[in-house]
Design a binder for these strands. Structure first.
Length: 483
RNA sequence: GGCCCCUUGGUCAAGCGGUCUAAGACACCGCCCUUUCACGGCGGUAACAGGAGUUCGAGUCUCCUAGGGGUCACCA
């Protein structure tokens, strides 16, 4: 039997990383089994529809490499793939349930119900629908229906007995029917509720494995009452734990946690994000941490899924992203970095040197700017105390002497290239019996005005070019002389 | 509050009754390399929530307690 999984987002906003991970696992499970991964849009709540949300889902999935075999845009044999377009198929199924005596028409208005609920809750109780309409006579129901009275259809949950199901991760889950409310299947607007549409769709679309968030775990026994009423075979349920921001809060866009889109915009590589996400809540069972999508497909298993929620660790994501960046070819690195280099105004400088000094220092591409901006825009108002460095044995006086002596020689030095400068400065230090650091420290500080820079004095000098480098060195000497 | 689920270092996690004086990774700390910072190399600190059982033996099984999460909508 072909494995069919689905990712079923509701178009109500952003794709946060938790959603993406759910999609990833569903994709992985389908692909691992040479099955079908389907995309279905659950838009039964018209009030919450957010413009552009479907596009965001498409883009995110595509950027992450999770292609879908069936979906609204690519079609398939089980369409339509948008619930609102399947609208007409739910009511007949609900009516069938009414015929079977497993559901009933309910004419209670939302207002009446809200009031009852408020009463019960203010008295400290737990509200549950009182089955008021379950005992309406057939005649009365028909009469009220004919008169055009607004209605909903509710599931008729047995008053005793158990409802249960088996979860691939959590095992057997069972609850007393007495705990369950008669949930609404068809809303007054004629649309199915999520719960009902979900069951009907998963069945009619041939879904074999339902991978979804933990929040559905406790309502799943109730869904199974529907499967049982129809005599349908149940899918394998796989409830995924929540990704948390900290021990007590789940990740949420509303609280400022990053969406996949945010991560892309700040210079994370999709491969790194996917790799990291795969490991939040799943383990291959061994030490391995680096996986391409294809490798994940091979390694993925339901057994490796975790039962407890995991905290999203952005420090580890950054580390992993940095690892991916370091593995990039120089050409690929420059390709990704270019927009940031341009923004920093250094795109015209020697790319070979830029790549060499930046690649091992880039955790996310967006931190390139702050690293290299001094190359394009020099702030000469740096603190003269930067010339003091214990390890390099420098202080402003020593630096003034060194710069005063070396600048004229540098001016006269013909070969302003990285190797030329390297040989020249190293020889200079040796001849004057200076530690390399003692010579290079003032040179680097004067050219950058920064205590910390990517690359050293030689790379910076080469990047800046003779004229600019000399100008900055002279400025440094001037500052030191006036001090 | 009722019901359901979860609980190994700060974080992700391995472990599926003996090989656990508990792996690996991130983070943190130290040392080395070094032209600052990073990279890289080496080393270190740090955990089975608590309590009862079961068993010759428990991180691994059972129960209780505590803590956390989820769910109780004409939202998905």
């Amino acid at each position: 039997m072909t494995v069919r999984t689905r990712f079923a987002p509701s178009p109500t906003g952003f794709m946060h990383v938790g959603n993406l991970r759910t999609a990833l696992y569903a994709w992985l499970w389908a692909k691992k089994n040479d099955g079908v991964f389907m995309l279905r849009i659950e838009d039964t709540d018209q009030a919450r529809y957010v413009e552009g949300a479907i596009e965001t889902a498409y883009q995110t999935l595509r950027a992450a490499g999770l292609n879908w075999d069936e979906g609204p845009d690519v079609g398939g044999d089980y369409g339509p793939y948008i619930q609102s377009e399947r609208k007409d198929m739910y009511l007949p199924y609900a009516k069938k349930l009414v015929e079977l005596g497993r559901a009933y028409y309910c004419f209670c208005t939302k207002e009446e119900l809200d009031q009852k609920r408020a009463e019960v809750e203010s008295a400290g109780g737990t509200y549950k629908y009182d089955k008021h309409c379950a005992s309406l006579s057939e005649e009365e129901v028909q009469k009220r229906l004919a008169s055009g009275e607004s209605y909903v259809i509710r599931l008729n949950v047995p008053e005793s007995g158990k409802a249960d199901f088996d979860d691939a991760i959590f095992g057997h889950i069972e609850v007393d029917c007495a705990e369950l409310d008669d949930m609404i299947l068809i809303k007054a607007d004629g649309m199915p509720t999520y719960n009902f549409a979900n069951v009907i769709d998963d069945h009619t679309m041939g879904i074999t494995h339902v991978l979804r968030g933990m929040e559905y775990l406790s309502s799943t026994p109730k869904y199974n009452l529907i499967y049982e009423a129809y005599g349908w075979e149940k899918p394998v349920y796989v409830h995924l734990t929540t990704i948390m921001r900290d021990a007590t809060h789940k990740l949420s866009k509303r609280d400022g946690d990053a969406t996949f889109e945010d991560l892309m915009n700040s210079g994370f590589l999709p491969e790194a994000v996917i790799n990291y996400l795969a490991l939040v809540g799943w383990s291959p069972g061994n030490d391995r941490e680096f996986f391409t999508l294809d490798e994940l497909k091979e390694a993925f298993s339901l057994e490796g899924l975790s039962k407890s929620p995991a905290i999203f660790d952005s420090a580890k994501l950054r580390w992993m992203n940095a690892e991916y960046i370091r593995k990039l070819s120089p050409e690929a690195y420059i390709g990704y970095a270019m927009p940031y280099l341009e923004k920093a105004g250094v795109a015209g400088m020697d790319r070979d040197i830029l790549c060499r000094i930046l690649q091992p220092r880039t955790e996310v591409f967006s931190d390139i700017g702050a690293n290299v901006d001094f190359l394009a825009a020099f702030d000469e108002n740096y603190d003269i105390e930067l010339f003091t460095n214990k390890k390099s044995k420098t202080n402003p006086e020593i630096c003034r002497a060194i710069l005063g002596d070396v600048i004229p020689k540098l001016k006269a030095f013909p070969e302003w290239s990285e190797t030329g400068l390297h040989d020249f400065l190293m020889n200079y230090a040796a001849e004057h019996e200076l530690k390399n650091g003692t010579l290079l420290w003032p040179v680097r500080i004067a050219m950058s005005g920064r205590a910390v820079t990517p690359g050293g004095a030689i790379e910076i000098a080469a990047l800046l070019g003779r004229e600019e480098a000399l100008k900055r060195l002279e400025k440094g000497l001037e500052k030191l002389s006036n001090a």
